[in-house]
């Protein structure tokens, strides 16, 4: 089988590269190219520096640069700096956050919501990942996973809109409830933390499902069988074997989903109401006006990023301690 395939491949190669070999040959014999190679490959060291220069430049200016510039602007008293005046650094923008209830209320609400939604996503997707990894044949597994992937190729706004239609006063859920006879007046699902939760879990479920699935798939079945032979019941097997060994997947899935959840802007605007204003809306508010409020907005963004990172940091520490405690 393998032998056949390799023979066939070789046959293919000779037919396709018949035309391209002169091309590469000509390139190699071309004077300027030889000169270039001579310069580039004087030493492995020179070769490495040429390979490394562009990525380093890109990472520093494009990946790190925007974050540093945001930090810089957050410390300015005015932006853009008026010509002829010196930069004045100040912590006023950060102080403004501490000074007003209307700022830290959405801040803590965002972090709480993100934590609750992350937990909901975990509860919803863990059984599904477990089912796919344990109870489905290898052949069907990819198909069933693919079925779940399809909706996740659709954009954030389109899916948010779909949730609006689902939960509206004349939406499908209310119609079904009315038809069953449970209610006679529509329940106002929309513009509440509930509708926001339904939307955000919808958007993040995949980012939880995939790490959980890969963690569960890696786990050998024999571990569970050994535990069963030693007399452990189904629940004990799950609690003492499966769960501890998938903590790493849980930890990375939760971290990812939590960070993504704190960053949503359009979904809370469309699905939430006045009582569910999140910090993203507060931050965005500073950027809709001309430009003099940018430093405050930047400071608030820094605060939010720091807050989210602090929570994920503590969470990861906890999970690590839990893992250690279990193996000890």
């Amino acid at each position: 089988m393998t032998y056949d395939a390799s023979v066939q491949k070789d046959g293919d190669d000779s037919t396709t590269s018949g035309g391209s070999r002169p091309f590469w040959g000509r390139i190699v014999n071309w004077r300027p190219y030889q000169g270039l190679v001579a310069i580039v490959t004087v030493s492995p060291r020179r070769q490495f520096f040429i390979l490394v220069a562009f990525p380093v430049l890109w990472l520093l200016t494009q990946h790190l640069g925007p974050m540093l510039q945001m930090l810089h602007v957050s410390l300015l008293d005015a932006y853009p700096v008026a010509p002829g005046t010196a930069h004045t650094f100040t912590f006023d923008n950060y102080m403004r956050f501490l000074g007003d209830r209307i700022f830290w209320q959405p801040f803590f609400r965002t972090l709480t919501f993100a934590a609750v939604f992350t937990f909901c996503t975990l509860i919803i997707t863990y059984p599904v990942a477990y089912f796919l990894a344990r109870h489905v044949s290898r052949k069907n597994r990819m198909l069933m996973l693919l079925l779940l992937l399809i909706p996740f190729w659709v954009g954030e706004i389109v899916r948010t809109y779909a949730i609006m239609i689902l939960l509206g006063n004349t939406g499908a859920v209310n119609q079904v409830l009315k038809w069953v006879g449970l209610i006679d007046r529509p329940i106002p699902f929309m513009y509440t933390s509930f509708s926001m939760g339904v939307g955000i879990v919808y958007l993040t479920a995949l980012y939880m499902l995939l790490p959980l699935y890969s963690a569960l798939e890696k786990l050998p079945k024999s571990y569970n069988e050994a535990a069963a032979d030693l007399g452990a019941g189904a629940w004990t097997r799950f609690r003492r074997v499966t769960l501890p060994l998938t903590l790493e997947g849980i930890s990375s899935g939760c971290t990812l989903v939590f960070l993504i959840s704190t960053g949503f802007y359009a979904t809370p605007v469309l699905l939430g109401g006045p009582s569910t204003t999140v910090f993203a809306e507060t931050i965005a508010g500073f950027f809709h006006v001309a430009g003099d409020e940018w430093p405050t907005g930047a400071a608030f963004a820094v605060i939010m990023f720091a807050g989210a990172l602090a929570i994920t940091g503590v969470f990861q520490r906890l999970m690590k301690a839990l893992r250690k405690g279990d193996t000890a």
Partner: peptide, 24 residues
């Protein structure tokens, strides 16, 4: 360090990344 910097844009929450890009 380079690996960390490489994944950074994927980990920054949406709104913060948008604001940072806007300022930059």
């Amino acid at each position: 360090v380079m690996f960390g910097l490489m994944v950074l844009p994927a980990l920054v929450p949406g709104i913060i990344s948008a604001i940072a890009f806007r300022i930059y």
